[in-house]
């Protein structure tokens, strides 16, 4: 039996900014339904990697394939069509401040997909309901808590029916108390078969949900493997060492 074609393939991506290699020949692939977690120290290129996946930053070398479609090829025609199929979640939410939660979710449906207002609103309410915020639909971002904002941003991304979700430290800006509600939604998504690439420092969470951890440092993928990779012990790799340090800080 042959391996299925990966849904998302990042192929030998290099990104140089001001002569510095932020990403150095990074490759990875996700099959449908995979949740892969990228960990590593700050400045290691994790966020840049995610932004290279949907060409928010254009790699200097290499390419990204979504269901076999080349991003570089698409960027010559209309990269926006490529990006539509990839949902993205940011550390600081990046909700549209002037729009209610409902409109935050509906605006791309209306202005990008060209849906009628009523249809877009109906879908927006379904997605807000999915993340448990149907009762907050009329509130504006500045009236929501951090956890609620991140859930709205998840609803906003999901409404576009993405094939893949990119999550860039979705809980890093949240109070410890609010992290759970966001992680719950992400876990639900993963169980329902969503393909996700997630940068996080929530090692415990990652360990339970993912089959593969990708450890990045200085723009390179240093180690890749199952969550056991993070188990320390003598002779543990760089990833284990990093996790031990995290555990020291969090006491877990």
């Amino acid at each position: 039996m042959t391996e299925p074609r990966p849904l998302l393939e990042v192929s030998r991506v290099t990104r140089v900014i001001d002569g510095k290699k932020i990403l150095d020949d990074v490759s990875l692939s996700l099959n449908k339904g995979d949740l892969k977690v990228v960990i590593g120290p700050s400045g290691g290129g994790k966020s840049t990697l995610l932004q290279c996946v949907n060409f928010l930053q254009v790699p200097n070398q290499g390419d990204v394939f979504l269901d076999g479609v080349s991003a570089r090829e698409m960027s010559r025609h209309n990269i926006n069509l490529f990006r539509q199929k990839i949902g993205m979640i940011f550390q600081d939410f990046n909700l549209f401040d002037h729009l209610s939660a409902r409109d935050n979710v509906a605006i791309a449906l209306r202005k990008v997909k060209g849906q009628k207002k009523a249809k877009a609103y109906q879908r927006a309410m379904e997605e807000l309901d999915r993340v448990g915020l149907a009762d907050k639909a009329d509130l504006y971002p500045s009236q929501l808590s951090g956890g609620q904002k991140q859930r709205v941003s998840l609803a906003r991304a999901l409404a576009m029916d993405p094939m893949v979700m990119l999550l860039d430290e979705p809980t890093s800006a949240l109070d410890p108390e609010l992290i759970g509600e966001v992680l719950n939604v992400i876990a639900q998504l993963s169980y329902s078969g969503m393909t996700m690439l997630m940068v996080t420092h929530q090692i415990g969470f990652a360990r339970h949900l993912t089959k593969e951890i990708i450890f990045m440092e200085a723009g390179r993928v240093v180690e890749t493997g199952p969550p056991e990779l993070l188990e320390g012990g003598p002779g543990g790799g760089r990833a284990a060492e990093f996790c031990a340090k995290l555990a020291e800080v969090t006491g877990r």
Binding site: Q84, I86, M88, A108, K111, V112
Partner: peptide, 28 residues
């Protein structure tokens, strides 16, 4: 003064830069 992440988020949703500016940045 409009947080630049919002433009990034709009582009990630599939907005063209022009439409992101018109629908997200300028209203604010």
């Amino acid at each position: 003064s409009v947080q630049s992440g919002q433009l990034k988020a709009a582009l990630a949703l599939g907005f063209s830069k022009k439409r992101a500016i018109i629908h997200v940045i300028l209203p604010q």
